[in-house]
């Protein structure tokens, strides 16, 4: 799927600038009639450093959107804007706009805690709490004030994460007693248990072996029935396998020699991997760069 395609370079020459391209096409594009997030001119700063510059994209409801690109291109940084995890880093701030169902996510009256309760996140390294499997799942509902029916919530979350059959007889055992792949599915179940609308995944398989990775990818297809998923991945094949849409980021060096993450191209995954419209995307997916 990543074989070089000849002849796209010619198209590039007269292609409009990337940002314009996006602005004119993402609304109303096939499969994107129904958006969850709309990102407009988003820049993220750590102190004075502008880590990501001018990202504009829309995320479709109940779709899997992949964000790919070389290290340091800002894809994880952008992902962490969707649930305001960047707020927790001292000195981090954003400019531009992210709306969630039309509501400005960074409006002063928006409670970041509330945002995170609707937009869940799964991390690179499986990070279950050093507690029982049951308590790991029940934690989210508990902090959300749920006291009754926890058993059912736990079971349902574990079933949705395709982990129930493996752990149903040892719910009292430590979450850390599971294998790496099981721990990551436990973390997915833990996120599902708070019944978010969106699940953000930050390289969820990078610490897993191929079999565990395949299980998580299968799981993602199922989850996309109920959830909107945004996944950051290093692995282009993974993006090609699981996602509906793919955003390609790269790091640009500006006039002062400072690197900024940029969104280069955002399109249907099939398009990105067969007929990318930007030379940089093509170079990346064909392995000539990054």
């Amino acid at each position: 799927m990543t074989e070089p395609r000849q002849g796209t370079a010619k198209q590039d020459e007269d292609a409009p600038p990337v940002q314009t391209f996006l602005r004119y096409t993402h609304r109303g594009a096939p499969g994107l009639a129904d958006t969850v997030f709309e990102v407009a001119d988003l820049s993220v700063y750590y102190g004075d450093y502008e880590a990501v510059r001018d990202v504009t994209m829309a995320i479709g409801r109940r779709q899997i959107t992949a964000m790919i690109g070389p290290s340091g291109c800002g894809k994880s940084t952008v992902l962490r804007c969707f649930n305001r995890m960047n707020d927790l880093i001292p000195g981090a701030r954003v400019s531009g706009k992210i709306t969630y169902h039309g509501e400005d996510l960074y409006a002063p009256e928006v409670d970041a805690i509330e945002v995170r309760r609707r937009i869940g996140m799964v991390f690179q390294k499986p990070n279950p709490f050093p507690k029982s499997i049951y308590d790991n799942i029940a934690y989210g509902p508990r902090v959300n004030g749920v006291r009754k029916g926890l058993d059912d919530i736990v079971e349902e979350a574990l079933r949705q994460a395709a982990l129930w059959d493996e752990v149903k007889d040892k719910l009292k055992e430590s979450g850390l007693s599971l294998s790496g792949g099981q721990q990551q599915r436990l973390c997915i179940a833990r996120t599902i248990a708070i019944k978010p609308e969106v699940i953000l995944m930050d390289e969820p398989c990078s610490a897993l072996d191929p079999i565990a990775t395949a299980k998580i990818e299968d799981l993602m297809h199922g989850l996309a029935q109920d959830f909107t998923i945004i996944i950051v991945t290093h692995n282009m094949q993974q993006a090609a396998r699981v996602s509906d849409r793919t955003a390609f980021f790269t790091a640009d060096v500006d006039d002062q020699g400072v690197r900024h993450g940029r969104l280069v191209e955002y399109d249907l995954t099939g398009q990105i991997f067969t007929t990318p419209s930007d030379k940089r995307t093509e170079d990346y997916i064909t392995g000539r760069f990054g």
């Binding site: 991390f123 934690y139 902090v143």
Partner: peptide, 27 residues
């Protein structure tokens, strides 16, 4: 206490004290 643990709790919408109780104190 690993950062991932603290982030895990925060990503679930835990307030600071809830994060401390789940991620910091047990470890």
């Amino acid at each position: 206490v690993p950062r991932e643990q603290i982030e895990a709790a925060q990503a679930l919408g835990a307030y600071r004290w809830e994060t401390i109780r789940m991620a910091v104190l047990p470890l």
